[in-house]
Design a protein around this nucleic acid. Structure first.
Lengths: 196, 196, 196, 196
DNA sequence: CATGAATGAGTTTTCATTCAT
DNA sequence: GATGAATGAAAACTCATTCAT
């Protein structure tokens, strides 16, 4: 492996360390030393690989979005190989989202943090915006196969994503057991599919 | 006016100052002096009225939840005076929520911040949990008048609130114009009412 | 009772409050509000009766020295009424010192605090110096009745007071039980009397 | 020299800076910045080497006790090389104590400060307690060579240490010249040795 | 006299960042 | 590329003191 790869590997290790830290504390409350400790790397090095704490954050946002997309695309590719029909694909989509993402507390926690950062930081907001745009475009594309009107598909797609994000939030701050969030998701999925 | 009122008035002024500050920066990035400046009071005074920055936060959370509830209850009382039928009430509910809350960027921004704080702070989380419980109970109650099965009403209620929170998030971090969030809300409202 | 007496009474109450506070914390760590709370008096009033925290301290030092002297003089007057012989008086002196002062942990604690303050504050040091001068003169006077050489009496007097202050310190910071300080005092007393 | 040594050297420099500061002000009135200034290091560094002001204090107490013991042990070792008889050793002990410790105003000032801190701080008190226990055990051991009864030796040992601490106090807060403290010490020494 | 709100200087502490080794 | 000592700005918090009521 070349130099570049060693560098890249260490950068990833730092990103993963931050990911770990964000399970415990907000980004603001996480210090450079916290991240360094989690990455088992000298804290001075973080300034060698990233020019500031802000820079770590920016790279982390990209890292998360990329990781999230990669995960999703991998799952999708596996599914596509089965050449499923529309209805099947939609069902699969919901189920996968629920299990892997919406009900994944660790992931959802990171999203809540990113939302908050995006709400104050224009650069982060722009990145997040693009990710949601892609994400919604994909969902809308899926719905377009079933729904005639593309405007309707777009609206339902947006609504579905909003609903999923809301559920993600609930996974983090409410009691998923008490609310039976899995049932709510399953029920909603059925209704949406019927509705189309 | 007695001393108690002066105290209470000043405490409210501080809460409102924090509210203002949260439009610009996160709570962590907002300093005691920032809040004091916004409230046009001496920073030492904040420690006279509140025992710590954490204490300001805790009181603020209560303040926001209370304010939000009061606003909603006032609107509801006005509506109730008209003695509307079920369908009418539901329509009114959605429309009011959308205009006053979901599409209110200032308010939504505060909510995103509170979600994030709740995701790391157990005390805040508990307060937020109770607020959502009440809120969902109310929506579920409304649906129960139209839906037979109470379990179904609870699930739809939860889903509706999740959807609205997701839309609230989008109001803050996405481009409401581009996404035509008002149309998405209107469409969703129609579909839900039809579905019932 | 006239105005002056009411004022004086309150000043004394404040002095006693400080005395109480010094059982818990050092003077530096005791706030004006702590003293006010202990005196059950509004903290603003402390600045009416005393011009600063420093001023409270200066007055307190006088108060303690005076109180200590008054206590001692009362005890002495009682004893003098019995018209005791020299040996008897010496024995009484030691015993009284031990019981009332040296082994009195509350009092000793205050003395340790005053010593420390005196070691940094010249005004307090001067007051303390005068008190010790008087105190040693009295002990020396007592010894002069038994010892021929006045220089010797002075030296022994100084040594006796030093010893008692050392024992006072031990009462506060060491374990009086473990060290059997009362036995040490009794033994020392016997030896001194024999020596003379 | 390795890093460990640099660290240790700097820690010692900070301890000595505090020692210097305590000649002027009490520990409470000495700020972290005062200590940093005296040590000619950046104030932030004090928090790199010590986790809090309290931690500096705790380490300082150990430092003083250790230093004091080391000084004493060095002197003792030198003396022991001469293989002195009991009487000679006792005389030497008193003289050395007087010159090096009891009449050393700088050292005594620090002791008065430590006594006061110990009187309010249980952790410091425990450290001081142990130091006095060792110290008294050593004096008692010395006396045991001359006195038959070990209980008597213990009592005299305690009394001697109390006396010396009292004299130490006088060195700080009274006028050593006026009181001729050196004479008092010399006289006392003679009498104790005669008494045995 | 009494009250308690208000002020502002000063303190400890944290931490991103730099840089010599 | 590492390391960790050093820096300094900024934060939360405390508190003696003042003063209008």
């Amino acid at each position: 492996m070349g130099r570049k790869n060693v560098q890249e590997e260490k950068r990833i290790r730092i990103m993963e360390a931050l990911n770990l830290c964000l399970q415990e504390k907000s980004f603001d409350q996480t210090s450079i030393k916290d991240i360094a400790r989690a990455a088992e790397v000298n804290h001075g090095l973080l300034h060698y690989y990233f020019k500031s704490k802000e820079d770590i954050l920016i790279n982390y946002i990209d890292f998360v979005i990329l990781h999230y997309k990669a995960t999703f695309e991998t799952l999708l590719a596996e599914k596509a190989a089965e050449d499923p029909d529309e209805k099947h694909l939609l069902e699969w989509f919901f189920q996968t989202m629920n299990e892997r993402i919406t009900l994944n507390r660790r992931l959802s926690k990171v999203f809540v943090e990113i939302w908050e950062i995006a709400s104050y930081n224009p650069d982060v907001r722009e990145k997040v915006r693009l990710a949601y745009r892609e994400w919604m475009a994909w969902v809308t594309g899926l719905l377009n196969r079933v729904v005639r009107d593309p405007a309707v598909a777009r609206r339902i797609g947006t609504a579905v994503v909003a609903f999923l994000e809301g559920m993600s939030l609930f996974t983090v701050i409410l009691d998923p057991e008490e609310l039976a969030l899995d049932e709510v998701l399953a029920d909603f999925q059925k209704r949406i599919i019927q509705m189309l």
